[in-house]
Computed example of a mutant assay.
Amino acid sequence: MLRKSPFLLVGMLLLASCATAPPAASGLAPTPTPTAAPAKAAAATAPRQPGPSAPPAFDQARDHNPLNKLSKAKTLSCSGTPAVKVRKWDTMKRYLTAVKGCLDRFWKREFARAGLRYTPPGATFVRKAPARFCGLEWGKNAGGMYCDLAGLKEDKRFTVVVRPDDVWPEMRIDLAILTAHEYGHHVQKMSGYMSYIDKAFWQADKKGRKAADLVNRRSELQTECFAGVALGALYDSMFPSRAPWDDYRAYTARWDQEASWDRSHGLPRTQVTWMERGWKAGTTGACDTWHAKSSAVK
């Protein structure tokens, strides 16, 4: 990899498809007809439909990504998510597992529209942060992490921590956003953005901490925007009103976040701004943090 040290994408707590079976065989062979051979020949010459493509890489992934050319995503139902009961950890785990399944369906659909290959990430929801994840120590204050290190068992997986104080019905929006954010790093991976991020970190490493922090903020705010794209399409089927989202926006804007987290992830109000941008636009094309002025990703 281009990075001198493993790059672990860190998230924060602020924030099925159906297939029809083929017809049953009758056990009777059809009577041959004079037209059978020409029909087979015609079928053999029928043009093949192109399969999904590999993602672009490096600057092409940033500047000419097929995902970014899509029209606004249509809504997708995520109804029927399990209820969350106070202090019942398993109920929140079931809820977030259902949300992750909805995100799988949403992003599978969007990648298919873009003609790109897609496989969903693995996910684990835990009560307590692990000591190590993806070969490194768990990040300080991290509510979740995504792993992008080939060869490790955690590769293309993310982990979200659901602490005891998080197990309340009112915390569904926070944890759904966190889950969608970590999922957004997988979208970066599958769409080719991660190769560009590797390159950007390699270049920033020569310039010092400030440059590396800027790259990290651009990456994290892009995934915040990706979370907005997905949740904007799913929200109305998940929540009965806009109240949970409005409350989230309000208290996030007042959150007194420590400076080190601001440097790596951006100010709380900046995170909400990028999430809302993706939410309203409904397409990853609105999530271009890489060409945005540094003042827009502070």
Rank of each mutant, 00 (worst) to 15 (best):
G232H: 02
L231S: 04
C225D: 02
Y251K: 15
M190V: 10
L234A: 05
R209I: 09
D174H: 11
Y196P: 01
L221I: 10
A259R: 15
I177K: 06
E182A: 05
A230P: 00
Q257A: 13
S219M: 10
D174S: 12
S237E: 01
P240L: 11
T252R: 08
A250V: 11
M190P: 00
L231E: 04
D213E: 15
M194Y: 12
A227V: 05
E258C: 08
H185R: 03
G192D: 09
H185C: 01
Q203K: 13
R242H: 05
Q222G: 04
E258N: 13
K199G: 05
W255Q: 12
T179D: 01
W202N: 14
G192R: 05
E182C: 04
R254V: 14
W261C: 07
K210I: 08
T179Y: 00
S195C: 06
R249H: 10
D256L: 14
M238D: 00
Y251I: 11
A253I: 11
E224L: 09
I197M: 06
R249V: 15
M190C: 08
A243N: 12
G232I: 04
Q222M: 11
E182F: 03
V215A: 08
W245D: 06
I197F: 05
A176Y: 00
Y196R: 10
F226D: 10
P240V: 10
H186N: 06
R263G: 02
L178A: 09
Y248V: 13
S241Y: 09
R249C: 09
E220D: 12
D246K: 15
F239T: 05
S191V: 10
L214N: 12
V215M: 06
R172E: 07
R263T: 02
H181V: 01
K210D: 14
D256E: 13
M238K: 03
M238I: 06
V187A: 06
L221N: 08
Y248L: 15
D198I: 03
G208L: 04
D174N: 15
A233N: 01
M238T: 04
R217I: 07
M194Q: 14
C225E: 04
Q203M: 09
S237F: 04
S260W: 12
M194P: 02
L234E: 00
R209W: 06
S237Q: 02
L214W: 03
A253G: 11
D174A: 12
G192P: 11
A259D: 13
V187G: 08
I197G: 00
A212N: 12
D262T: 14
A233H: 01
R242K: 15
D247G: 09
Q222V: 02
D236W: 08
A212W: 07
V187T: 08
A253N: 09
R209C: 02
P244N: 06
F239N: 04
